[in-house]
Design a protein around this nucleic acid. Sequence first.
DNA 1: TTTCTTAGTGTAATTAATACACTACTACTA
DNA 2: TAGTAGTAGTGTATTAATTACACTAAGAAA
Lengths: 230, 230
Amino acid sequence: MATEHDKYIKPSVAVDIVVFTIMENELKVLLIKRGQQPFAGMWSLPGGFIHIDESPEDAALRELEEETGVKDVYLEQLYTFGRPNRDPRGRVISIAYYALVDSSKIKPHVTGAEKIENVQWVDVSDLPKLAFDHEDIVGYALKRLRYKMEYTAVGLELLPDLFTLTDLQRVYEIILSEKLDKRNFRKKVLSMGVVEPAKIYKKGPHRPAMLYRFKKSKPASTFKRIKFEG
Amino acid sequence: MATEHDKYIKPSVAVDIVVFTIMENELKVLLIKRGQQPFAGMWSLPGGFIHIDESPEDAALRELEEETGVKDVYLEQLYTFGRPNRDPRGRVISIAYYALVDSSKIKPHVTGAEKIENVQWVDVSDLPKLAFDHEDIVGYALKRLRYKMEYTAVGLELLPDLFTLTDLQRVYEIILSEKLDKRNFRKKVLSMGVVEPAKIYKKGPHRPAMLYRFKKSKPASTFKRIKFEG
DNA sequence: TTTCTTAGTGTAATTAATACACTACTACTA
DNA sequence: TAGTAGTAGTGTATTAATTACACTAAGAAA
């Protein structure tokens, strides 16, 4: 039977992922150097075409694991980019995701086909020119991440299982590019009830800090909004 | 030249639109009765397949105009639904949008192929069972609309060019399903600077009310958040 | 035991949100 | 033409949330 959707020339459907992590006190994005045309030699976002039997989320997770070796990530759909000429090869619609990964979980050398020199974590404030419309996608992801930081505890996703409140504050300060008041920050985070003390102390050269963990029971989105950027 | 994306069986890509309007003091959604299998005879969201040379936004606007006769709408991408078996005909990925239209702009009889009895505005609180995963899509759209109402002036999109502040308050009350304080509501809306008085009064049997218009200069998103629903 | 460095804590001032009730204006009708 | 019905329009006091701000505590190292 000829079905309705067979009448149309079909676009290809891909996923692209903006993977954020915090390394060296900077917010970084994962980039891949393209090996083929178009845009051969240029940096681009990790991603690829959706397999016919997998959901877009699964495709994003698969690509992500192939390219970073990371499995447990926070992944959120961002936006679907579908301008007809965004890909010179033909019609490609891309479902963009962003992911947050704890840098301590990233495997030191990359699995899969990509060579190490073709994979790189780059400062968001120092991005090279990117292939396709990937600069737009990164911009969009950054906006969404910052926005979400203002009123949720999504920043927890960038930290290891145990962390100090100072670590968490640093994550917020790096992403929002602004200094936060220590007492007010702690007051807010603790009043949200999204973290709980692990009753273990971090060892080190100075005063030991209480380690906290993410309280799984609470949804991560109970932050009270601070302000709104238009 | 064989390109990378030719290797994959391609899914079909569609758009579905949740069109909201306010009629009879209720928030309504536009539904279309399906004429063919699958789900023949069931109600569904307006939508259709993307043409190969149009952006998803254009496809959504085209479908919308075909089915409601409305051109000037507020349209926002919602989410892309791509579960492998969401459509029994085969792999169909749907980019969902929601739209807000002023009910006074809706043409009384529908243009295009749809028969009038197959098109209907339904109360969001009284939806029938819908085809495909369209109930999920409506639920998602409602959540997003209510959320956005809390901190932006998006409700303006449901009103004609000139409206009273009481009209605007009614829109917010209907969508949020809660009564708002008149003085506080007016204070907030006016302090946002998103509307300006038209210096014309609405005529009627009672005290004439000042008509306002949407101030185009300001972005619609300057509302201060009231509260957060998790 | 002193110094260095980070951890941890409370209160007062300011700002934003809420609760709340009366007068003003017009059309209609008696 | 005075009264009534019905919507428009306005301000202030209370409460809650956010912000600003500075010292003591603990351990490691010299």
